[in-house]
Design a protein around this nucleic acid. Structure first.
Length: 280
DNA sequence: CCCCAGTCCTGCGGGC
DNA sequence: TGCCCGCAGGACTGGG
């Protein structure tokens, strides 16, 4: 479930590791396979051990650890991955460990219950190709109205599935797509090419408002309690959700109406049919 | 090119 | 009570 706010929280949680030196890198017990780690463990040793962490960034929903060798470790948590500097929720699903020296953290851990996540090691050119503008759109947090219209203004798709397309905008997932459209007052089935400039402006503002607030609350920890920050603490934004997982409950903007759940491209969408109009 | 369905994976909750 | 099935949705693949 980690989307932009959760991954940004992970990034901030390990940011103080900048300047630390990597003492070892380990794949943890094989009984928690499969977790794809590319390339081979030997290559990891050779290219990573002894390097210093120069910067920690984010590429959409991935944490990027930049080394002084100009290589990047990319942590892609997908559904249930966590990046931790303290003991994980369980030892069973601990997948990967970076031991550090010379900074505040002894280690950075990667834990993943379902194991859908991935970890990559890229040289700068590989990274730029992999996450270049062809593969990954502008970061949703700072995207402008002009960029939104450039990316999706001509598309005949419905807006909600389009928000999940990482080539259009990087970082939005299923939860925040519904939240953003409710704040913007846009119907999830509205076609992109039918949206007015005023609606794109509303979408831009809503995206920034929702994602920034979610970051301030350190992300959303849903009912299963999986998502945690780097210190294994829950996020708080789930208490601010307007529509997500709230089918049948009153709309926060028009309390006499109830939130509806529909399915678009095999994924749940939550919205209010009264204040999210299909027409402008 | 554009878009959608299928795939991976685990834990949980509903139904019987 | 115990079992089975469906569902949750990240990113990617294959195909219409």
């Amino acid at each position: 479930m980690p989307e932009l706010p959760e991954v940004e929280t992970m990034r901030r949680g390990i940011l103080a590791a900048v300047g630390s030196r990597i003492q070892s890198v380990q794949r943890l017990p094989t009984h928690c396979q499969p977790l794809e780690i590319v390339p081979s463990p030997r290559t990891w040793q050779r290219r990573v051990v002894g390097r210093t962490i120069r910067d920690i960034g984010r590429a959409g929903k991935r944490v990027v650890i930049w080394l002084d060798s100009d290589e990047a470790i990319v942590l892609e948590p997908r559904m249930t991955g966590l990046v931790l500097v303290v003991d994980p929720p369980t030892t069973a699903h601990l997948r990967w460990r970076l031991r550090l020296a010379g900074g505040p953290f002894a280690e950075i851990l990667y834990w993943d219950r379902r194991g859908l996540g991935k970890i990559y090691l890229y040289r700068r050119e590989e990274f730029l190709h992999r996450y270049g503008p062809q593969r990954l759109g502008p970061d949703a947090l700072t995207m402008t109205t002009t960029q939104w219209i450039q990316q999706l203004g001509q598309s005949r798709r419905e807006i909600k599935p389009a928000l999940l397309d990482q080539r259009a905008a990087a970082g939005i997932g299923n939860l925040y797509a519904s939240e953003i459209l409710h704040v913007a007052g846009i119907h999830p089935r509205r076609r992109c090419h039918d949206m007015t400039r005023r609606q794109w402006e509303a979408l831009t503002a809503a995206t920034q408002r929702v994602l920034q607030a979610a970051i301030a609350y350190e992300g959303s920890t849903l009912g299963d309690g999986t998502y945690r920050n780097a210190l294994n603490k829950r996020g708080g934004y789930q208490n601010q959700h307007r529509v997500y997982n709230r089918a049948g409950q009153p709309c926060p903007r028009c309390p006499q109406q109830t939130i509806e759940r529909i399915v678009q491209t095999q994924r749940s969408t939550f919205f209010c049919a009264t204040c999210q109009l299909r027409k402008p």
